[in-house]
Design a protein around this nucleic acid. Sequence first.
DNA 1: AATGAATGAGACTTCATTCAT
DNA 2: TATGAATGAAGTCTCATTCAT
Lengths: 197, 197, 197, 197
Amino acid sequence: MLSARQQQILEASIELIDKHGIQGFTIKNLSKKIQISEPGIYRHFESKFDILDTIMDIFKQRIQDYHKFLNDPNNKPEVRIRNFFDTVLKAFCKNPAFASVIFSEEIFQNEEKIIQKIREIQEMNAGIMRELILEIQAGNGQHNNIDPDLINSVLFGSVRFLVRQWKANKYDFDLRAKGNELIGVITNTMIIRPANQ
Amino acid sequence: MLSARQQQILEASIELIDKHGIQGFTIKNLSKKIQISEPGIYRHFESKFDILDTIMDIFKQRIQDYHKFLNDPNNKPEVRIRNFFDTVLKAFCKNPAFASVIFSEEIFQNEEKIIQKIREIQEMNAGIMRELILEIQAGNGQHNNIDPDLINSVLFGSVRFLVRQWKANKYDFDLRAKGNELIGVITNTMIIRPANQ
Amino acid sequence: MLSARQQQILEASIELIDKHGIQGFTIKNLSKKIQISEPGIYRHFESKFDILDTIMDIFKQRIQDYHKFLNDPNNKPEVRIRNFFDTVLKAFCKNPAFASVIFSEEIFQNEEKIIQKIREIQEMNAGIMRELILEIQAGNGQHNNIDPDLINSVLFGSVRFLVRQWKANKYDFDLRAKGNELIGVITNTMIIRPANQ
Amino acid sequence: MLSARQQQILEASIELIDKHGIQGFTIKNLSKKIQISEPGIYRHFESKFDILDTIMDIFKQRIQDYHKFLNDPNNKPEVRIRNFFDTVLKAFCKNPAFASVIFSEEIFQNEEKIIQKIREIQEMNAGIMRELILEIQAGNGQHNNIDPDLINSVLFGSVRFLVRQWKANKYDFDLRAKGNELIGVITNTMIIRPANQ
DNA sequence: AATGAATGAGACTTCATTCAT
DNA sequence: TATGAATGAAGTCTCATTCAT
């Protein structure tokens, strides 16, 4: 569906955003990076916006695939939560630029349609997590359960924070290990065995 | 130290970044907002970068003041943690634009010096929190204490996440209340009474 | 002489100019309209200019044909004038895009060769009209005859004006009827029975 | 109201359109013509469209002034008609570029707002002429009066045609003399003493 | 006969900044 | 303290056309 050139353009765009922010993502920089003239880009994408839009579509699709793939009813919900985050962390380790783009709605000011797509991804994630959290809470019969939305803020907020640190520190620690530890602690303390509030 | 005009320029800059992102922070927009000519700006700041730089200095100073002010040895460490976050949340509620700027290092790609300042603020915060966490952990004599850095990621990451949600939802919930609840839950479950890992 | 594709290209070009002006007549628009690739156009015409040039040739030929066909010596000159304009008006009604292109030398600035062809058409028309006018004037023996060139300006200028109005008003009146009335009035008042000047 | 620079830009724009058509009216050409950088233009006009728009406003104002000035009730309507056209023809002779721009709605395809303004000017002209024609027709008590709209088409259409010829022939005849003759003939034959139809 | 890929030239416009006043 | 005028660099994008296939 996407030509080799189109994929190359998308990859180069992601890298550009990763390394130099949205302000570094210019048609000029992009064309230089893939050794093509500026108008050449427009043979493959209608506009700069179209490139961004396609990137977001791909991300959304990929994360949907993760959910589908990991949604094995034979697994306990806490395992599913861990698997999801592990998969995502693995993906970030493999291609750190993804993280920069997907966690960067601040970057896409003025691009309402792009922000919308990022929001959709987040809501999809949050919705699935909420189900799993409720399932665990229903199962463990405790009376001091914590609001799943609050837990969601903690889960996604702290992973995000960790990834940002990872990038700021030039990837000098093992994101996957630290991330999984983080998720494990949160799951244990806030979902499975929450302290009395 | 700062003239009235300078303060006006800084405020207008923060609002501009808040509302339209770094891309909306242009000398033209700024001069329009404060009803001055474009060259007029340069009477008060050497460059656009200088404005950003000064903003960061002010933020850093303000947060240092918070810490100094709240660091009352008569208060228990958990109270001090709560007080700090409550103060910050209160400040955000009073002036939501602050939040947009201080949580936006993604925005300042290419501006190494600005990023450096943001990092200093974060490290100051993290350092003080670490002390307080260790103090609590030392006091409650448990053996299953959680790494203070991990807790820091959770504290700052989730507050940040909440603030972002608050802004995305057009400030339609009580940030201070939800934020304090969040900090309370994290403090309880992860610092004071951590579950067995 | 012209292949089917060539004719298709010419028609599409005329329509494009009619609807969107010379600025809308681009190879991209043209290729989109006839469902062919952009380079595909160049299989059939050497250049964009060549397309325009061919259009003008066709127009010139067609009008020459009209004159030849209508130049029946059995008809009185005033009838021949009326027949010519009626034929032209009929052609415009059948294909309004013709009018846009043939009356648009303003559009072809910089294209000296094209302008030249339009001028040739006009001179041919004017020359034939002049003959017919002189014939009438010679026949009616009046002493207050009007300069045939002036009459030509009136004939062609007002028809042109009417066609422009017709287009501006989205073809909402009967061009042929109004045009014939116009020509009738002009012929009557200025050629056949001119008032004393 | 308009600065010297703005007037210079407007004049240069009109000349550019006159000599090279709308396609020659580019910011680059304009800036070259008045010896300024391209961005320099934008200190004086918001956009290219804004320049065109201002030109049309000026034209409209000027023609309104003509009408006001010439509308002397002491003059007979046929004199007023002649005066109006004489004034316009004089203006064209003084600044031939005006004519190119004002008679060029074909040129402004896609610029709906500009076309609208040209149309307003034309309607204003037509409306005033219609009144004067009716006044004459009412006065001369004839029964074979010609539709004033038809006469309008003849008046404006033939003047326009004459001006176009004048330009095509590089201003090699006396437009004012020929134009006044034309108007005189039309007024005589079609308004004052129309032949029986 | 047709096309996918490419491009140099150039379109309009915005940017941060400077200079003379 | 302020500004009107200016600009080089860069932004996104369109143009007619060419070339290899």
